[in-house]
Amino acid sequence: MTCFHCTCDATSGNARALSYQTAHGCFRTPMFMPVGTSATVKGVTTDQLHAIGSQVVLSNTYHLSLRPGADLVAEAGGIHAFMNYDGPMLTDSGGFQVFSLADTVKLDSEGLTFRSIYDGSYVRWTPEENMRIQELIGADIAMQLDQCTPYPAERSFVAAAVDLSAAWARRCLAAHARPDQTLFGIVQGGMELDLRLHSVDMLRRIEEESVAAGGRRFGGFGIGGYSVGESHDVMFETLGTVARALPEDRPRYLMGVGNPTTLVRAVREGVDMFDCVLPTRTARMGTAFSSTGRMNLRNAKYARDFTPLDPACCCSTCRNYTRAYLRHLVKQNEMLGAMLLSVHNLHFLIDLMARAREAVLAGAYEEFYRDWMASPAAKDY
């Protein structure tokens, strides 16, 4: 099968079930991607990732380019060989990380200069250099370099970021050449619907001009700049319109969102892919997702609770360990506690999206959505 071929298997309202072929296998949506920022999903082995149904793992260009360096990753055989993960992978461009350190970034017409968080050295990125780095790392999906704006932000600042991101999208698409890797464009625009739609229009135009000149098209589209401080209700004022304005024949990826209820709501609006550090980060804090809501394992009520973490869950943590034991690990700051909770939390989101896909295939997503929103878990997320 041709790489980066997308098939729509079913729709249910605005919700979609897609199959997307990459050089390292096919993934199916709706889908949640574990985040392996530095070529590792914290506390989780690649065997465990496969066991919980992980389809795509995300790594970060900013961190990998600084340590251990893209050249070293390429020398190891690429990111898949380096971290021993044989499924599809995606690299974020690192733009979010760069712009989150705004006081160390100098922006000009050609690119940006920033200081490494590791040794303070100055690093220069242009869109072309960012593409070179992502091609060296070798994930199946690369993301364009873009400017993500904070919330709140002045409209003029957001508008300028939209124009800059579009200019960089054009340059990234022109520079990207690795045949076994595809490039996603990214929509920006803050909470301003007209700026969001303008961003979509520019990405469409850039792609049309590229194809007309014999060049490549985007393999899919990221929706960036959400979950940066605004409430979820504010995000949903524009998200659905923006998602459905994107081409129907490729994936729509809402970047950096991992709240279970937000995922269920976003699928209903036409979003296909998600990623977030939330499940592993909260696990390291001793918190578990569950079918009845968040569970803080530090609470004394679990001290003598010898039932499974979540009786409705079939992950290895829930099959083999009790709440009392997990609380003991958390209270003792044992690394095993964070590891076991990370496995569970990731499984929870991956399984939630698998069940969402089943509902789409059955033409029953609205029923699935209503059931989730009426559940005890939805009220706690």
Rank of each mutant, 00 (worst) to 15 (best):
G13P: 12
D194Q: 12
Y85N: 01
N130D: 10
R124T: 15
V162Q: 02
V73I: 14
F221I: 10
A266G: 15
R281G: 08
E207F: 05
S65C: 10
I133C: 15
P308D: 10
E358N: 07
H24Y: 08
N14S: 13
A51P: 03
L164M: 07
S316H: 15
E192W: 13
V271I: 15
G111P: 07
D140C: 09
R323N: 09
E208L: 11
V123L: 15
R298K: 15
C314G: 15
P68M: 10
V277M: 11
A17R: 11
L246V: 08
R250F: 05
G25V: 09
E129I: 11
R265G: 01
V105Q: 13
V343G: 03
V44R: 02
S375D: 14
F348S: 02
V41E: 00
K106G: 07
T282F: 15
S290N: 02
T182P: 02
F218L: 08
G256Y: 03
D140W: 00
N14F: 05
A17I: 12
S59P: 01
I206S: 04
G240N: 01
E230K: 10
T91H: 00
D305Q: 04
F289R: 13
V73P: 04
H347C: 13
R196W: 13
P251L: 00
I350G: 01
G120H: 09
V98T: 03
A288T: 10
D249C: 12
F32W: 13
A354F: 02
A374F: 09
R281T: 14
V44D: 04
E192I: 07
G215I: 01
F82Q: 06
I79T: 00
V56S: 04
M353I: 02
L341S: 08
A266Q: 09
L173I: 07
L164K: 15
F82V: 03
V158R: 04
V41R: 05
L336S: 10
M335P: 14
T91P: 01
G94I: 05
Y325Q: 15
H5N: 15
R284F: 14
T113L: 14
E192P: 01
F274R: 00
A300N: 07
H347N: 13
V360Q: 09
K331I: 11
G77P: 00
A177H: 11
C6P: 03
M33W: 08
M1D: 12
